[in-house]
Write a protein that binds this DNA or RNA. Structure first.
Lengths: 327, 327
DNA sequence: CCTAGAAATGCTCAATTCGAGCAAAACTGG
DNA sequence: CCAGTTTTGCTCGAATTGAGCATTTCTAGG
């Protein structure tokens, strides 16, 4: 066992370290992600190489290539996860001839206060295109009981041992809230991984160069980018509960309903308006500006702003979002 | 903007990817971390190179070198964070002549059910040696008001602009729970970073080759390992609240008091026994075995075991730990 | 000018959960 | 058999949560 200095030179082989950015913005209550067109026509997350000579930290490197390539100035940024599985680069490598290089990607989450039109390549896509089963704002999507549930059930039946079959059923039940189990919005990554294992997303078949046996769920992405996106959604949904990150997605002034719409878009389900507001002002996150927004369609709403530094004494650090029970 | 395949070959320069393991175990309610002696005598976290040719995933690589080097079979493992700042390797590079190589470390958290004696190099150290200010089980440590608070205050006074001074005071107040602010055990990393910036930990001076102006807090570690350790503590303290990871640190059978002692050790403060048990059995995490543990010193306690798969319907996913108010 | 509709805002109330304490039970060691 | 120690059971007020109804304040359309 050694410390940071490698005792022997490492037989690294071709090793590439890159940065993947998952950049979110919300437009009219609809969460969107910044995507690009990959070389082979697949939708992809923005990717930039990490140049250790030029960049002192990952974050500095990330901000720089996002700025140069999209003209976008990142605000809030946080590291997500580092993806290094062998084979994750294979689907692309086969097409481009860069086979053999091991690609390690450090994933980052970035939040933008508005989905600005982009000068460079790249466009904003609603994230529900990639995860249609995650949007419960108008009730649980039909696809869960119509498609996902039966197909997960037959996937469970494929298991040989009865013990493994029961484990699969239980896993499907808890991750998708089947059969009375509660829906946990934070488990978006678990759900994607389960669908992948069960062969219900296109990537599962592409990675094995097999043919799917039925329609595939949601729009697919290059490489493991949809997994990275799921990681980002899970992280963000968890984080809004204990850090006031939702405000990074808001303009400087906003109505309480706009804020609620954003939070509902992120969480993926509707909230009780009065309770949301009560929790908000117990936490003391926002203050009224006195000015009104008249274009509400009804009674004008007061414009509020985020109180960046000054939370009251023992206040909560995030927004109160209830657990969603059977619905 | 491109996808995963690098458009141009990357001028990577000397780039080394390694794996850092933060392995925890709890002994008699005392959380301990597995450390080694670094080349220059500094305490270090176990480190292993990542060989892309040999290992399909980071996790497989990690498990393998931990097994070969310490004889330890890892159970629960989770990725923490990837550390890649320039200069983090400098203190070691200067000593070993490997200067110039950029070292990127993927940090992992591992949990072990017992602090087994180690055949290889490495020993278990209580984590409170490195973070003495984090242990509030017997009340808030004196060092906070005697040393930390006054020194943070004078650090705040060093700021030029009055606005920046106020921001520093506020930051100290919320991270350390000064002046009536609540103590948030999850913010261990924030606290370490604040002490680093304020020059109260030895690493801050070592990295600048300056001399400290007073006694330094806690035992220091090589490179940025103490920061990695703080990251692990913060992550674990957060995670026990929404995933039943505490059980990864328990033997198969345990008394409820033993479980509580472990959770208290991790959280860093004492819990109300009856409330802890009430929450436990609402969550349905454990079941009695009927057998008794007589060596309690008092009334024998029933031995319990973790119910791995079968949580009741709408149950919580982690242990209820209250927010610690002013103390 | 009046009215229906829409949205914001204010208030209430029961159910649940939380925080904290007291008391009894069951055992060990002298 | 008694003092000490720990487990276990119970209670109770305070705080929080979930959900609904009522009122206010505006716009739009006749």
């Amino acid at each position: 066992m050694t410390t940071d200095q490698p005792a022997a030179p490492i037989a690294a082989g071709p090793l590439v370290v890159g940065l993947n950015a998952v950049i979110f913005a919300v437009e009219n209550g609809e969460p969107k992600v910044l995507v690009t067109e990959g070389a082979d026509g697949q939708t992809a997350l923005p990717f930039g190489p990490f140049d250790p000579a030029a960049h002192r930290t990952f974050e500095i490197g990330l901000r720089e290539w996002v700025r140069t390539q999209t003209g976008f100035e990142l605000g809030y940024v946080e590291q997500l996860y580092t993806f290094g599985d062998k084979g994750r680069e294979a689907p692309l490598a086969a097409l481009t001839g860069s086979a053999g290089a091991r690609v390690i990607s450090v994933g980052y989450l970035g939040l933008a206060p508005e989905a600005r039109a982009l000068p460079g390549a790249g466009r904003w896509e609603p994230w529900s295109r990639f995860f249609p089963w995650e949007d419960h704002r108008e009730g649980r999507p039909d696809m869960i009981s119509v498609i996902i549930e039966p197909r997960l059930r037959s996937w469970a039946d494929e298991a040989a041992a009865p013990g493994r079959r029961a484990a699969r059923v239980e896993r499907a039940r808890t991750t998708f809230g089947l059969d009375g189990a509660p829906w946990n919005e934070e488990r978006a990554l678990d759900r994607y991984e389960l669908l992948y294992e069960a062969g219900l997303v296109a990537e599962a078949w592409r990675d094995q160069t097999l043919q799917p046996d039925g329609s595939q769920l949601g729009a697919s992405m290059a490489s493991d980018h949809r997994r990275i996106l799921a990681t980002a959604i899970s992280r963000l949904r968890g984080k809004i509960k204990y850090r006031p990150v939702a405000f990074e997605l808001m303009p400087t002034e906003f109505t309480l309903s706009q804020l609620q719409k954003v939070v509902e878009g992120l969480a993926g389900f509707a909230l009780h308006k009065q309770n949301f507001r009560r929790a908000l002002d117990r936490a003391g996150f926002v203050e009224g500006t006195g000015r009104l927004e008249p274009k509400t369609g009804g009674r004008p709403a007061e414009l509020h702003r985020f109180r960046r530094e000054s939370a009251p004494r023992g206040a909560a650090l995030g927004l109160a979002i209830p657990r969603l029970k059977d619905h």
